[in-house]
């Protein structure tokens, strides 16, 4: 392995790269804004019970964005927050979106009781398009997970996931690799073992690198100066693999390039999707993580 840090510890020279939107494949919707029932220490948008910087989206806003994107030939939808299941109209939002294409909903799992799990499973079975629920879990023990997601959350998250599984859904588990060894194959195996113990024998897992912004900046440290992108660093393949070459994020406060930058100064692109079809500048340090880690939204 080459240690990049030895070679480059100064900011790269030249302007930040520009990136065109190839086609709107993925529409993200920040349905519950920055409001969350947890306040995880690695949350890159500092969500929590009191963060109202992005409020809930209204049902009609969601409908408008979904229909606009559908008319553009979008391929898939993602709901996130905050915690999407805090929204009183989340079920209507899920139903209307699934009319137009496949949907993944990102949740911390805590609010998934038996009744909701049954409704989600029924929706999954009746929908024309695929419907996925992604549950975030950040460790294979209470100590590991709770240090990041908050006290007693390990059992609450697993409880929600097990209820989904018992209702007939196979949720995707997303793991943020704050504990670096979790991304290694032995670390992965520990997840498979844990989930098998809980009766989830064919689990689906996705590992994500943390973004050093929001609350994570205070937890894991900020970006270094050299962690920036410049024009020469990106070839065609690297450009195509960045999710922002094919996604946009709609919130109650307007449209952003991606889910990561919604609280970052200058990232807002406009009021509606039509205003946000132009190129973006990859001048943010979080863009460096996307490039180095190959972050994508795909399951």
């Amino acid at each position: 392995m080459i240690d990049l840090n030895l070679a480059i510890d100064r900011p790269p020279e030249g302007p930040a790269p520009e990136l065109e939107l190839r086609h709107l494949d993925t529409l993200w919707l920040q349905v519950t804004g920055t409001l969350c029932n947890l306040a995880c220490r690695h949350c890159f948008i500092s969500c929590g019970p009191k963060n109202e910087s992005h409020p809930f989206m209204e049902l009609e806003e969601v409908r408008r964005a979904v229909e606009t994107a559908a008319a553009m030939g979008v391929k898939e939808f993602y709901f996130t927050g905050g915690e999407p299941f805090m929204h009183p109209q989340i079920r209507e939002m899920i139903a209307l979106t699934l009319e137009h294409g496949p949907l993944s909903i990102l949740t911390n799992g805590v609010l998934i009781d038996e009744e909701l799990a049954a409704w989600l499973a029924e929706t999954f079975h009746n929908a024309r398009y695929n419907f996925d629920v992604r549950v975030s879990l950040d460790g294979t023990t209470p100590e590991e997970n709770d240090a990041i997601r908050g006290r007693h959350t390990f059992e609450k998250i697993l409880g929600g996931a097990v209820r989904l599984h018992e209702a007939g859904l196979n949720p995707v588990f997303t793991v943020t690799t704050c504990h670096a060894e979790l991304a290694e194959s032995a670390g992965r195996q520990r997840f498979f073992d844990l989930l098998a113990e809980r009766g989830i024998t064919r689990p689906r897992l996705k590992f994500l690198a943390p973004f050093k912004i929001g609350r994570e900046e205070r937890r894991g440290g900020a970006y270094e100066d050299f962690e920036r992108l410049s024009e020469g660093m990106l070839d065609e393949e690297a450009r195509a693999s960045l999710q922002c070459s094919s996604c946009r994020m709609v919130t109650a406060k307007g449209v952003y390039p991606c889910p990561i930058l919604i609280e970052e100064e200058g990232a807002r692109m406009g009021d509606t999707l039509d205003d946000a079809m132009g190129p973006i500048k990859l001048d943010h340090p979080a863009c460096y993580t996307c490039f180095v880690e190959g972050v994508t939204c795909r399951t």
């Binding site: 086609h23 391929k75 137009h100 294409g101 496949p102 398009y129 695929n130």
Partner: peptide
């Protein structure tokens, strides 16, 4: 291109492009 992952309008977009 999985059946459950391809909205009609997305397929129309591919055909057109």
């Amino acid at each position: 291109l999985w059946e459950s992952m391809c909205p009609d309008a997305f397929l129309e977009h591919l055909l057109k492009s």
